[in-house]
Computed example of a mutant assay.
Amino acid sequence: MAEGTIYMWSVNQANKAAHEAWVKETGIQLVQINGQRKYGGPPPGWAGSAPPSGSEVFIGKIPQDIYEDKLIPLFQSVGRLYEFRLMMTFSGLNRGFAYARYTSRHNAQEAIATLNNFEIQASYPIVVCRSTDKCELCIDGLALSVREDHLLPMLQELTTGVLSISLHLSPCRRERQLAEVKYISHHAAAIAKKALVEGSLCLCGDDIEVDWLKPNIKQKLHNTSKQAFPGILPSKYFHRDAPSKIPSGLVDSYMQPAVGSVLDYLNLQCEERQLGLPLFLTKCVQKNREGWLRFWYQVVIPKYPFPLSGFIWIKPGHSGMEDHEEAKNAVALQLLKILGCPVV
Rank of each mutant, 00 (worst) to 15 (best):
N94E: 09
R80E: 10
K328Y: 00
M87S: 08
L74N: 02
D65E: 07
Y67L: 10
S248V: 12
L155E: 07
Q227F: 11
A242I: 15
E209K: 06
G92W: 07
L155V: 12
Q121C: 14
I28W: 05
L308Y: 04
H186S: 14
L81M: 04
Q29Y: 05
R294Y: 14
I338T: 03
S200R: 08
F238N: 08
G41A: 11
P215D: 14
T159A: 14
I66F: 08
L152H: 07
Y265D: 01
A122C: 11
H19F: 10
G54D: 08
Y304T: 00
S253I: 06
A18H: 13
M321C: 04
G92H: 03
I72T: 03
N329R: 06
E119I: 00
S235H: 07
L81E: 07
H106L: 10
E68F: 05
I184G: 14
G4V: 11
G340N: 04
Q286I: 12
G276R: 01
G276M: 03
S77E: 04
L339I: 09
W292K: 06
E198H: 13
E325K: 04
D323A: 06
I33S: 06
G141F: 02
G40S: 13
I232T: 12
G45L: 07
Y7Q: 15
P316L: 03
Q109T: 12
T160F: 12
R105Y: 07
Q269C: 12
C341M: 04
S131L: 08
M88N: 00
N223V: 13
L250V: 05
E325S: 09
E136G: 12
